[in-house]
């Protein structure tokens, strides 16, 4: 196991180096001069040229790459061209927003997905099973940006139940400490805002969680069906509803492996989907951060933002692999 971990870690090195290089080169290839954008439409040509020089954008690419690359090792992610603030200082609030949203989405997906899967399997071929599985099929095929819009239209605009955008009630917002608002509001003892934050999480969390939810439900159902074919469950089943809870607990454990896998596989989709979800729900997360940086050619932000997301993604995949290896003895660490 230890050797396996080490091997997986070392195999990451070329991948990370390659990522840094590819992102760097790609960003340079984006047309448009950031100096022009910073100065805006009213700027004179001379001003643009002067700023280009000041930003070091007139240097050859290898010089720029080297200074970026060596900076990374010192924990220097670069300085945002737009805000003139070190990225390492300003990225956390965005990252925290995305983490909060992704966790909410995952929670919704896991809770609903696993339960729907178990119940579907238990009552195989019932109307519940059919409905759940049809919904799951639709869920897997869902364009989440459209789902988000429809949610807003029905739940927020027509019924006026939940807020459509943002993370909290702006008036009288709490001062962020960790930037995970659920925690911040509690640290301030502000239950009213805590409830607001939860309300704000529901719609985007649901939109983002839909696809993993559908996949988890389907996987749980099929693994559950396999479990149920075993004799002791059949016996349990014959004994009626009381046994449902016994089986429920038992299957939860069994469902763990596929669910861990799915969570691992879905993190990428989740991080990608976050960009779309954040656009629709005005969520100030890392997706918004990167997307806006692309529009304003904020090179350092684009490259460090993409790298950080990709890095998290790679890391989670690694963790999932290791976890998977740990819980499933059938996997050989060769």
């Amino acid at each position: 196991m230890f050797a396996y971990t080490i091997r997986r870690l070392t195999s990451l090195v070329p991948v990370l180096l390659g990522m840094i290089f590819i992102v760097f080169m790609m960003i340079r290839a984006i047309p448009g001069n950031p100096a022009q954008l910073i100065l805006g439409q009213q700027a004179t040509e001379r001003a643009v040229a002067a700023l280009t020089k000041e930003l070091g954008l007139d240097q050859p690419w290898y010089t720029q790459f080297w200074s970026y690359f060596s900076g990374l090792f010192k924990g220097d992610l670069g300085v945002s061209l737009k805000t003139n603030t070190p990225i390492s200082e300003e990225i956390w609030p965005y990252l925290a927003a995305t983490i909060e949203l992704s966790l909410a989405a995952m929670l919704i997906a896991v809770v609903i997905g696993i339960n729907a899967g178990i119940i579907s399997a238990w009552f195989q071929n019932s109307w519940f099973d059919y409905c759940a599985m049809v919904l799951a099929l639709i869920g897997v095929s869902m364009p989440i940006f459209w789902l988000g819009l429809m949610e807003q239209y029905i739940v927020a605009i027509q019924w006026d139940l939940l807020p459509t955008t943002g993370r909290d009630n702006i008036r009288d917002a709490v001062d962020p400490i960790t930037h995970l608002y659920l925690i911040d509001t509690l640290m301030h003892g502000r239950i009213d805002q805590f409830i607001e934050v939860i309300k704000h999480l529901i719609l985007p969390g649901f939109a983002l969680g839909t696809i993993p939810m559908a996949i988890i439900a389907r996987m749980t159902r099929s693994s559950m069906l396999e479990v149920m074919r075993s004799d002791y469950i059949r016996t349990a089943r014959a004994k009626g509803m009381k046994m449902f809870w016994v089986v429920y607990k038992h299957s939860l454990k069994n469902a763990l492996i596929p669910v861990v896998t799915v969570i691992g596989l879905q993190i990428g989709l989740l991080l990608g989907g976050a960009i779309l979800t954040e656009t629709i729900f005005g969520w100030p997360g890392i997706g918004t951060y990167i997307y806006e940086a692309i529009s304003s050619r904020d090179y350092p932000v684009i490259q460090s933002g993409i790298l950080i997301v990709a890095f998290i993604f790679v890391l989670i995949n690694l963790l999932v692999d290791l976890l998977y290896a740990a819980i499933d003895p059938r996997i050989k660490y060769k």
Binding site: I30, P31, G32, P34, Q36, L37, Q41, S295, R297
Partner: peptide
């Protein structure tokens, strides 16, 4: 194009026709 590239290219005369505007200073 993205806004920055758009301005730059229009400024360089690459666009045959274009939309823009101006707010007085």
């Amino acid at each position: 194009f993205e806004w920055g590239a758009y301005l730059e290219k229009v400024q360089a005369g690459e666009a045959p026709t274009f939309m823009l505007g101006w707010t007085g200073d």
